[in-house]
Design a protein around this nucleic acid. Structure first.
Lengths: 248, 248
DNA sequence: AATAAATTGATTGTTTTTGATCGATTGTGA
DNA sequence: TCACAATCGATCAAAAACAATCAATTTATT
């Protein structure tokens, strides 16, 4: 067993499991730990993996900042239920808009094996889907670090070039009076997504229902379906005016 | 048993098992180890196999998809020198195009404290610069995982909307006959960058100078400056026809 | 047949790879 | 915070593989 052969196996293991343990690898390859250690160091020098104590990890070029992950990790149970229901709406061949909300982000994990095109302004979405069957299209324009997303005039124009079958969007608030956002940039891009999609789904956990915040940017007619874990009476009104409501 | 016959058997074994062991092969062919060693060296020179200690392996088994990580980690010392020189050309207020080459990527670390706008189709560049003073603009379009970058018609059109003061580009080869690329997508986006920038810099390590590969997509007049660690005599010709050459 | 050229194998010393030891460093849990 | 254990890097030694050289053999050429 030479270095090249070991290198091959190590990188395969890394790709499959995301990490490598020196002890285990030494046993598996029937060699000493120090040999594996040396191998890992060499591979780390070439930037092929990231060395840890006792092993190695995959390198990730696109790391998502902690605060985004944290926000996305809040209220995960409700969000995951919502996203599972949303994923059920997506079938192979769909062209899907996904915006930069934290709920929409969690939808990624449920659609990796679908043969669809995703058009998004969110870098975390790109990151999550980059090694999946999904083909990706990034919306261009000015990048906002805090939101980890692209916004602005050029981005809106980019969206207008495409026509999606479905759009999955988040908002900061929704009430019988319409859709609300915390910034003009997000409002206008959400509007653009909705305008260029055959069907528009709003993913919102209970905290968003009935909430009116900062800027009202669209009426309820901009959306076709609300997917939510809430059972607020506001939802009855939505149904009455023709908005589909999927409860989870 | 002559060389031709052995060569045939060696290559067959290689194809069947993916690797060849000198000891075993010597025994099997009833010849000495040094003969096999010599055979393998010859075959390796012709690129038919990859030589290891004690044997050989199939080339394509070791060829890990040209991914970005791999390229970026290669020849870093030369690249860093080139990039330091390139960074010296950038001043506050510049609007800078950066393409998705691995050399250009390494420029990031040297420009984090500059107050400039960077427009790029490379996600690793975005990641590197996202927590810096640099303001970022992402070029939109279809995302290619292997290159970690955006390419295509929409991307080219996006570039055409902007006008940069400087463009920092990589190529797969440059000779007195012009610029060469390994794919049409990269060629056309490089062309677009050059066309919409007041000044175009080519960052290339010595391996690229004099190399003519696959597709010629532009003449030398497309670029203003070459920054390189090479001292090839080809550079003299570049100077003669008015291309600035910065050696490092 | 005589000569030249290429191939092969043996010998030599050198380089590479590997594994063991030991003190230093790092991480973990009380 | 301390101490224990795991992991680490440096150094050394042994084994394997190596390149270089030269002689023997085969093959090709005149």
């Amino acid at each position: 067993m030479n270095f090249q052969k070991r290198k091959q196996i190590i990188l395969e293991t890394l790709k499959a499991t995301g990490e490598v343990d020196i002890k285990r690898m030494a046993a598996e390859l029937e060699t000493s730990e120090i040999t594996i250690r040396r191998d890992l160091n060499k591979l780390a020098e070439d930037g092929l993996l990231y060395r840890t104590h006792g092993g190695a990890m995959q390198v990730n070029l696109l790391e998502i900042p902690h605060d985004f992950v944290n926000k996305a990790a809040r209220n995960t149970e409700a969000k995951d239920k919502i996203c599972r229901a949303a994923a059920a709406e997506i079938s192979d061949g769909d062209i899907v808009f996904m915006d930069c909300g934290s709920t929409v982000y969690r939808l990624c994990q449920f659609i990796k094996s679908k043969r669809i095109k995703v058009i998004t302004n969110s870098l975390p979405v790109v990151y999550e889907l980059q090694n999946s069957l999904v083909s990706l299209n990034i919306i261009g324009g000015e990048f906002n670090t805090e939101r980890q997303a692209v916004h602005g005039k050029i981005a809106n124009e980019h969206i207008a070039r495409y026509k999606a079958t479905k759009a999955f969007l988040g908002v900061d608030g929704i009430s019988r009076n319409g859709l609300f956002a915390n910034s003009e940039l997000e409002a206008s891009i959400t509007e653009a997504f909705a305008a260029h999609s055959a069907r528009t789904y709003l993913l919102c956990d209970e905290s968003k229902i009935g909430r009116e915040t900062y800027l009202k940017f669209a009426g309820l007619d901009a959306i076709d379906t609300v997917i939510t874990n809430s059972n607020s009476e506001e939802l009855e009104y939505f149904k009455k005016i023709g908005v589909e409501v999927i409860g989870v």
